[in-house]
Every structure is written in structure tokens, then in C-alpha cells.
Design a protein around this nucleic acid. Structure first.
Length: 106
DNA sequence: CTGTTGACTAGGC
DNA sequence: TGCCTAGCCAACA
């Protein structure tokens, strides 16, 4: 527990291979349910850290909202590389891949 | 200190 | 089903 950003990075790093999480769930795990935007913002600041699988973090619909930040379809390819089916910028069978820190880390 | 912006979310039409 | 609005919190000019 260093600062809010580090916490976010920590949780994102904990997302297992082939799994994804949402801004809202991460924010909820950190205690700020309303701070989903902050999570996304932290991701934006995490560009320099390659150890942070930001591609596993999507919005509540499983939509690759940050795809543009990865450049082209990189985010989608990374997810597909992990066995996640992505179509039209959206994760298919999203619920099956969803990883909720507040539940998994319980 | 005030206003704008953002990788969000929920509710309304 | 799809677009719009309001609420939310934090960083930045």
C-alpha cells in the first residue's frame, strides 16, 4: 500500500493469464467504487510500465475502451493471444473471463 | 480556487 | 437497442 496508483497497478498485475477485469471492480476493490475513471486514468499513466497488463482491463461491457491507447488492434491481439475471443472491440463471453479482485483475492 | 477533462457507470428516453 | 445525461473522483491549466 503505497499510493492509489500503486494499488491499482498491483491489482492489475494480479490479473491471471486469460482473465480480464473491469475498472469498476478494481475501483471497488480499492474502496472507490465511484472512481472507475481514476482506474482508467491510472492505466493511462501506466504506459511506461510494461509489467502492467492494462489490456486485461476493460469497461463494464467488456468493451476494449483503451484499445486506442495500445495502438491499432494491439490490445485485441494480446487478449486473443491469451485465449480471449474479441469481436468488434468487445470481449465475447466476457463473464467467463471476468476476474473480480474483491472476490478472487478474498 | 474554479473549470475542464477523462481507458467509467447507471439510469432515462 | 442505442444515444444522451447526470454523478462521480482526481489531475491539470
Amino acid at each position: 500500500m503505497k499510493n492509489a496508483f500503486e494499488d491499482i497497478y498491483e491489482v492489475v498485475r494480479l490479473i491471471p493469464y486469460g482473465k480480464v477485469s473491469t475498472y469498476g471492480e478494481i475501483a471497488a476493490y480499492l474502496g472507490n467504487k465511484r472512481a472507475a475513471r481514476m482506474v482508467g486514468w491510472a492505466m493511462c499513466a501506466s504506459h511506461g510500465d510494461s509489467s502492467i497488463p492494462a489490456h486485461r482491463v476493460v469497461n463494464r461491457n467488456g468493451l476494449l475502451s483503451g484499445k486506442a491507447f495500445f495502438g491499432g488492434n494491439l490490445m485485441q491481439e494480446l487478449l486473443e493471444q491469451e485465449g480471449i475471443v474479441v469481436e468488434n472491440n468487445k470481449i465475447q463471453n466476457f463473464k467467463a473471463h471476468l476476474w473480480i479482485p474483491s472476490k478472487e483475492l478474498l
